[in-house]
Design a protein around this nucleic acid. Structure first.
Lengths: 224, 224
DNA sequence: CAAGTAATGATAGTAATACTATTATATTTG
DNA sequence: CAAATATAATAGTATTACTATCATTACTTG
């Protein structure tokens, strides 16, 4: 699995970047270090100038890869959803029973990333944390409709669709399959955030609790 | 009800503002116009300078009410949650049956605000839209823990707690009452956002659909 | 009603952000 | 080795997010 993950490349919409960061050493360093820095200082304080200083490169060079830091965030979150989709498909592909398949899917999307694959320049553990803290900011903007039209969010949308389809496979007559799917994905991020910062607003104390919660929620809802 | 709402004042944590905007005409104009502007141009593009120009007042005068625009956002969202809590308590107070009470509560927190009370300087319809689009940004910051400690989010937390308690009143042995409560509140905002921008990621086409969705979700979960 | 105080406005200034443009220097490749 | 390409260095601009100072207006109170 790890070897396999090393060799795959997550295909990101070309409109998100000016020059593919995967195509050069500098590009990879930009992505690599930006993950560390955004995780460290938060997206608001992060700037291309600081990133340049950190990787011993020039601010203007970074602009040749990404138009601005918002697009870099869209790139990082897209990469994450593409990566997670890969995990999802890989793990559920062979499961024939719809209920078992959905259960596995929920497990995969609600757990936190514990281990860095350590092969690529992308630290998945930290990226997972970034997604928990910053994902909403990628679409809660005035430009969301035009960016959506340009295909900036296809990978995220594909994740929701896949889970929605799995729900339909279990219960074709359930009328809120897609809403439930989006609730699982977004809600899971939210529960993890609450666990870290607003302990009184969640029953999830450990990472696995989020899985139990959503597993229970979905199972009872679909078995009604 | 409308008359009543006019006379009540939502008590906001004093640490959120420098000077209480309710205490002067200028303060009220700041709040009033900021709601229109944030709604119009989005929180990122909104600045105190632009606000000053709009209300024919000086940038520096606005800083005498709010330290920065982030705190203004915290103020606005806090006001909204306080207002919604009032609606919630008012509407559910007299309902003795726990299931009926929870049902009413879900209806109130999942519906969108349709009508401005037209009495105060605060346009609740637009504020509701701002909360859908910008609420997450009030806490998805690096300062969340210190601000939480200062009590910036008490009103939001109280809303979640109240609904959590109502869930417990229906099913005391359900182990995820608080998580379910936070899922309803945050998930509802998210479904409304999806309805407006990512139609394929939700089954909610009309505003009422969100109510149906969460009502069904909660009912089946608690009746299992 | 005069005098004092508080609120607001006007102006100026600063450091940082978010870029763009230009030119110089490496590095790669044919 | 020359040409093309990538990166670095430098400079510059408009805007943001403030802070500080001082002038003006409004409001209160003795």
């Amino acid at each position: 699995m790890e070897r396999l993950l090393k060799s795959i490349k997550i295909a990101i919409n070309e409109k998100i970047y000016v020059k593919d960061p995967e195509s050069s050493t500098l590009g990879k360093r930009i992505v690599e270090e930006s993950i560390l820095m955004i995780n460290e200082m938060g997206f608001e304080s992060f700037t291309f100038k600081k990133l340049g200083a950190e990787i011993g490169s020039n601010e203007s060079s970074i602009y040749r890869y990404f138009e601005n830091k918002h697009k870099l965030l869209v790139y990082l979150t897209s990469w994450y959803w593409g990566w997670l989709e890969y995990q999802l498909v890989f793990a559920t592909n062979s499961i024939a029973d719809p209920s078992d398949r959905l259960e596995k899917a929920i497990e995969i999307v609600t757990r936190t990333t514990a281990k860095d694959s350590a092969f690529s320049h992308i630290n998945e553990v930290l990226l997972n944390k970034i997604v928990i803290n910053e994902n909403s900011k990628s679409f809660l903007t005035k430009e969301v409709d035009s960016e959506n039209k340009e295909g900036y969010f296809v990978l995220y949308k594909r994740m929701v669709s896949r889970i929605g389809q799995m729900i339909k496979d279990v219960r074709p007559d359930y009328p809120f399959a897609v809403s439930l799917a989006s609730t699982i994905l977004e809600g899971s991020l939210h529960q993890h955030f609450l666990k870290d910062h607003f302990g009184t607003l969640t029953d999830c104390r450990k990472n696995e609790d989020a899985t139990s919660y959503f597993l229970h929620l979905v199972t009872t809802t679909l078995n009604a």
